[in-house]
């Protein structure tokens, strides 16, 4: 029915007593996510929205059996917080924080790989399996349980795609915001692999943007390994070269990473690419009908 997270996923919120941590813990609990613990060093023993707070992730894992962490701690402390999660037996880290230094991510990814820990993000809206678990900051009500998987480098543009799919009468198996940074924990290829293996995902929407070559790598993977239909949209056709478009990773550098290159690569892999961001849902329906 889903990938990576479901109703049995037990979540610990790192940075639960901060503004964003507190607010979204409330929304996640309300959605029905099993939020079992929170961590803020020095605030152990307290409670946020009925969720017990611990001083360390190790403590939280031992007392509650948490296996997934969502990270709201400030960017400067994320490297440490994520390493702490990985070192404490957490299997999936969802890093929401925007602005983590790139070399911090490069450094911690090596450690996570050795430990076999998956990270989603940073600078992402999180992951949701509709009706089961919302581990992120996305508005829950736009999602509907269903069979379309969504992978995206954007936050709000993902909501747009989800909304279009829901309005077309379909629903989503799992939606993952991969994040807008130059290096992220989970790539399109990682997500596509998981969706291809998931018997209940019938189609996948890929939302890319300018910068890097993750979409080209995805196209290669789709061409060689996927039977599940894929639809896509690439943001930034009108973006000028050399300018960072909001996301740290959204930049056309040295003439590489343009939208037309990515669109061509995806079409070459038989992906249904929508030229307009308003027709992402339609493109998915078209790909499914082929």
């Amino acid at each position: 029915m889903s990938i990576l997270v479901n109703k049995d996923t037990k979540v610990v919120v790192q940075g639960i007593t901060g503004g964003a941590g507190k607010l979204h813990t409330g929304h996640m609990v309300e959605y029905g996510t099993q939020v079992v613990a929170g961590v803020t060093p020095g605030k152990g023993g307290g409670e946020v929205h009925g969720v017990p707070v611990f001083d360390t992730v190790a403590d939280a894992v031992e007392k509650t059996g948490a296996n997934c962490s969502i990270v709201f701690v400030p960017a400067a402390f994320c490297r440490d917080a994520i390493l702490e999660a990985a070192d404490s037996g957490i299997e999936l880290v969802v890093a929401i924080t925007e602005g983590i230094p790139t070399l911090d991510v490069a450094d911690l990814m090596h450690y996570l790989r050795v430990r076999n820990v998956r990270m989603i993000g940073g600078n992402c809206p999180g992951i949701i399996t509709p009706g089961e678990a919302k581990i992120g900051i996305m508005p829950g009500y736009i999602h509907k349980p269903g069979k379309i998987g969504i992978l995206s480098r954007s936050g709000t543009l993902t909501y747009e795609a989800v909304w279009q799919v829901s309005n077309a009468g379909a629903g989503q198996s799992t939606c993952i915001g991969l994040g807008g940074d130059p290096i992220v924990g989970t790539s399109f290829v990682d997500g596509l692999k998981l969706f291809e293996e998931d018997p209940d995902t019938e189609g996948v929407i890929l939302i890319g943007e300018i910068g890097g070559t993750a979409e080209e790598e995805a196209a290669q993977f789709i061409k060689e390994n996927m039977s599940t239909p894929v639809a896509a949209f690439i943001a930034g056709t009108t973006a000028p070269p050399g300018k960072r478009m909001g996301h740290a990773g959204a930049i056309i550098a040295g003439g590489k990473g343009t939208a037309p290159e990515k669109i061509a690569a995806l079409r070459e892999a038989n992906v249904e690419v929508s030229e307009s961001p308003a027709h992402i849902g339609d493109a998915m329906m078209k790909a499914l009908a082929r």
């Binding site: 709000t156 807008g180 939302i207 943007e209 930034g236 009108t238 996301h247 959204a250 307009s276 961001p277």
Partner: peptide
């Protein structure tokens, strides 16, 4: 716009619906 991806997509759709006759 809120969000970098949606902001880029909004620029793109202006060009798309106008057939290139209007620009952000």
């Amino acid at each position: 716009v809120n969000g970098a991806g949606l902001a880029m997509a909004t620029m793109d759709i202006i060009k798309f619906v106008s057939g290139g006759r209007a620009e952000p």
